[in-house]
Design a protein around this nucleic acid. Structure first.
Length: 892
RNA sequence: GCCCCUGUGGCGGAAUUGGUAGACGCGUCCGACUCAAAAUCGGAUUCCGCAAGGAGUGCUGGUUCGAUUCCGGCCAGGGGCACCA
């Protein structure tokens, strides 16, 4: 699907014979200017720059080996912002680095029998070259890679500081365990209850792991969302739901003495204390201490618990799982009636790590409880009656009622609303005593769990802890940091390579010097990406993660750009980490990203052969046969054109940025990526689209050539007399560029590009109009101004073409160092405007008036219009609505 | 199941946020240049209608002088969370 380039023909443009133009050759021009920018250090950010700062950051890439179109889109957007802000007089920081730890390196190394570090650094080198060919205005002197000990040593130090500051926990937690690979699996690595690599049934295991106490910041992380007003509403909402705050009541139930004297009570958490009189049972999680204790004397219960733990925690497994329970024989006393005894079950649907791991079941108003009750025949009593429903007729069979209403069957609560009943129950139980303590207390719970960071893997940041049999978990002393990963590890054996290493894990206890063992778990790679933005502010500091004075000048990031897939984890972790860094004195603020933008994906049509094989776009030839698009394989066989989907290896619908840049140039790729689709939506990569962008590159090059012939020398002054025509040229330049500016500031790159194209179209028209006539000095000035405005307006998107044009216009320094055009407000708004005139809401005519004509004049002129009189059909005007500078509506 | 977003020509989309619906581009068609093709340039392109004119922003009702925009109901597509008590 590649198009041949480089064929030239005589141009044929109006009657003026400008002969200068050769076809623009992106290949040579782009390399040339990339070298010039590099030699001049145009994009190196200096600290001794007094101008206001602007930190633009795109999410840094994982060094997978090659950049993909998603990267091109992401970095093209960031680069527009960076170049625009630079032109607007900001001291811009625009760095790049590598999110370089992670499993793919281990897998690749295992496959190729090589080394994760070598694989990673080779990939970084390849991708750096590709990014450079895009002409991004990056400060490469600040490049960092998270797998570099010079980076992760600070991370290890911060980990220990966080431990000291009470932000880290070490506790048992249940994990998905792959018995074949002998490793922990994330939930998304469990497919249908089996390990994604080994295909072995996944087990639940208790492991002691390190946790960042993100839960302790839940309320703060939630509250601060309200102030992130330059974040997409959608992301804030997703984070809000993820944090999942709920207000409820902790209620203690006394247990009837039944041989369980040591646990005389059970505590549950509920958000529906109002439904307490509808309670039919109590249920605890299989991992609740009470369940475990009871299992000790009851083999059947023990077997039931084991069965619950065997089944996976994956979403799919849970959805289909039936509600199952095991009656412990224990009875709980209803808090408002000691004679009312509720059976206590161990139930598979009760989660241990939310609330207290125990619930009371009210089947009438909770679907899960209803399903459970229907399976075990425990009965249903409705206690909330929907409005407009006689309580006598209200019965619950298979669907629980979770809506609002009035209390029924609830003794002293009867007749109350749900909120009133909640309050009343809380009030009564808070003052009631059980065992000399209040029977209940109000509590806020969060869905957000602490962040488990331990990973049983090699290619990650080692956790700097030494486990001593006598002293326990001991921090590695400062002087011994970083704890560096060993080289030449055996990745072939299952399990954690660090654990297998013959020497690495053996160390002396820093406190007592006895033989001890290093922590062999490494950190989740999300830790690496939770602070890299801060490291960019001073990547040269060897003794600390940041230099606070410098970090505080640059942070927060003014504009962060990346994929929506990181809406929750990466962004939430970074917000937590920034708070932790604030508490440990590394930064002076709590929020890392002032402005966030989430861009859409790059998608492409899919093609499939008759035999069901996916075919790559570059091997497909498209034709239109009698209005129907058809696709053909190289051998001529017709292909099925499939749906448009995210570019992926599995569907082979990938277009390699390298190929595009080679054949079209970076500017064409960038321009196409930014045009058409709004940046937050998906963009469809199409060959026609690239062709259109490539065509525009040539069109601009020709236009600038033509303008050069008509324009005055650089630095010309406005002549005293300016004709109407020249004034119109100037109006076009100023008004369109003003709008380009507005669109870029709102990150509306597609409409910014439409506006630039409008200016090009207008200028082509002006050139045609002036054809064959001498160019007076005022027009020569207007044309020069127009050319310079245009070039500077598209320079953020097509920087190489802009440089070539700028040079053509007679400048010897890069346009990348030139300021944004100075816009005269007088010229950006037109003097005369065209008002649509409606009669009874239907447009019937247009009226051209002065911008600030008074209402009376407009009314009179509107009524005098032929078309208006006709539409009014002799009826008098009842009312005339004139909205200044908008519309006239005559109502009859 | 809960929460959220989006529905506009053949296609991607625009509409100053209640004021000319379809900007800008892609595609298609017609024309110019050419022996020819490519490239380039000009024109047409929401639908119905020869036309005058009429209809039209998923469907449906409402508010308004005026609704793609605001409100109610429905339909379709997409996303997030998911046994969170």
């Amino acid at each position: 699907m590649l198009i041949e380039l480089g064929r030239c023909g005589p141009r044929n443009m109006g009657q003026i014979g400008f002969m200068h133009t050769e076809r623009y050759n992106p290949h040579d021009v782009e390399a040339k200017w990339q070298k010039i920018w590099n030699d001049r250090q145009t994009f190196v950010t200096r600290e001794d720059d007094a101008r206001p700062k602007y930190f633009v950051l795109e999410m840094f890439p994982y060094p997978s080996g090659r950049i993909h179109m998603g990267h091109v889109r992401n970095y093209a957007m960031g680069d527009v912002v960076a170049r625009y802000r630079r032109a607007r007089g900001f001291n811009v920081l625009h760095p790049m680095g590598w999110d370089a730890f992670g499993m793919p390196a281990e897998n690749a190394a295992r496959q190729n029998n090589s080394d994760p570090a070598a694989w990673t650094y080779a990939n970084i080198a390849a991708m750096r070259g590709q990014l450079k060919s895009m002409g991004l205005s990056l400060d490469w002197t600040r490049e960092i890679a998270t797998c570099d000990p010079r980076y992760y040593k600070h991370q290890q130090k911060m980990f220990l500081e966080f431990v000291k500051a009470g932000l880290v926990d070490r506790k048992q937690s249940r994990v998905n365990w792959d018995p074949v690979d002998q490793t922990v699996l994330a939930n998304e690595q469990v497919i249908d209850g089996r390990g994604w690599r080994s295909n072995a049934p996944v087990e639940q295991r208790e492991l002691t792991q390190w946790f960042f106490k993100i839960g302790s910041c839940a309320q703060e992380l939630l509250d601060a969302l309200d102030h992130l007003d330059r974040w997409p509403e959608k992301v804030r909402l997703m984070q809000k739901n993820w944090i999942g705050r709920s207000e409820g009541l902790l209620v203690r139930f006394a247990l009837a003495p039944a041989g369980a004297e040591e646990t005389p009570e059970i505590e549950i958490y509920t958000t529906r204390p109002d439904t307490l009189f509808g309670a039919k049972f109590i249920a605890v999680s299989p991992n609740h201490p009470l369940a475990r204790k009871a299992a000790g004397t009851n083999p059947a219960l023990s077997a039931f618990i084991a069965e619950c733990n065997r089944s996976g925690t994956s979403a799919a497994a849970l959805e289909t799982a039936e509600k199952k329970g095991f009656d412990t024989g224990l009875k709980a006393l209803h808090p408002f009636d000691a004679d009312w005894r509720l059976p206590v079950f161990v139930a598979n649907f009760v989660l241990m790590d939310y609330g207290t791991g125990a619930i009371f079941g009210c089947p009438a108003h909770d679907q899960r409880d209803l399903d459970f009750v229907n399976a075990y025949g425990l009965g249903v009593t409705p206690v909330v009656c929907p409005p407009d429903q006689p309580p006598a007729d209200f019965i619950i069979l298979k669907t629980a009622y979770e809506g609002d209403g009035r209390m029924i069957n609830s003794r002293f609560l009867d007749g109350m609303s749900v909120p009133e009943a909640k309050l009343e129950v809380a009030r009564r139980l808070e003052s009631a005593l059980l065992d000399n303590r209040p029977q209940a207390k109000r509590q806020v719970n969060f869905r957000l769990r602490d962040w488990g960071i331990s990973r049983q893997r090699y290619w990650g940041c080692p956790i700097p802890i030494i486990h001593c049999p006598d002293c326990g978990a001991v921090p590695v002393p400062d002087a011994d940091l970083p704890v560096v990963l060993p080289e030449h590890v055996n990745l072939a054996a299952p399990g954690n390579p660090l654990d297998h290493h013959p020497r690495w894990k053996h160390a002396a206890c820093p406190l007592c010097a006895k033989p001890a063992l290093r922590e062999t778990d490494t950190m989740d790679t999300f830790v690496d990406s939770s602070w890299y933005f801060a490291r960019f502010t001073d990547p040269w500091n060897e003794s600390a993660p940041t230099t606070p004075a410098i970090a505080n000048r640059w942070l927060p990031v003014d504009q962060y750009i990346g994929g929506i897939e990181h809406a929750i984890l990466h962004l939430l972790y970074s917000r937590f980490f920034t708070r932790a860094m604030q508490k440990t004195g590394h930064v002076g603020m709590s929020e890392p990203f002032e402005g966030l933008f989430t861009q859409g994906m790059v998608v492409h049509e899919t093609y499939k052969s008759a035999s069901g094989e996916w075919i790559a776009p570059k091997d497909v030839r498209l034709e239109i046969q009698s209005d129907i698009r058809k696709a053909f394989a190289p051998d001529g066989a017709e292909l099925v054109i499939g749906s448009i989907e995210k570019m992926s290896k599995s569907k082979k619908n990938i277009v390699d940025p390298d190929d595009i840049i080679q054949s079209w140039g970076a500017d064409t790729a960038r321009w196409f990526m930014l045009s058409d689709s709004p940046p937050d939506r998906d963009v469809i990569w199409s060959e026609e689209g690239v062709q259109g962008a490539g065509r525009y590159v040539q069109q601009v090059w020709r236009l600038i050539g033509a303008l050069c012939e008509l324009a005055c020398q650089p630095g010309g002054q406005i002549p005293p007399e300016v004709s109407a025509v020249s004034e119109n040229i100037r109006r076009a330049s100023h008004s369109h560029v003003k709008r380009v500016q507005d669109h870029i500031e709102r990150l509306r790159f597609n409409t910014a590009i439409a506006e630039i194209r409008k200016l090009t179209n207008a200028l082509n028209q002006f050139i045609d109009d002036i054809a064959n006539t001498p160019v007076p000095p005022d027009a020569a000035f207007a044309f020069r101004e127009a050319a310079e405005f245009l070039v500077r307006a598209f320079a953020p998107m097509m920087p190489h073409l802009a440089e070539a044009c700028w040079q053509q216009l007679g400048y010897s320094t890069p346009v990348a160092e030139a300021p944004w055009p100075e816009i005269e407000p007088r010229l950006a708004a037109s003097e005369r405007i065209t008002l649509p005139v409606q009669v009874n809401g239907k447009k019937r005519a247009e009226l051209s008036v002065d911008r600030d004509a008074d209402l009376k004049t407009i009314e009179a002129e509107a009524l005098a219009l032929e078309a208006v009189m006709q539409a009014m059909d002799g009826k008098p005007a009842k009312r005339i609505v004139v909205v200044p500078q908008r519309i006239v509506n005559v109502v009859t």
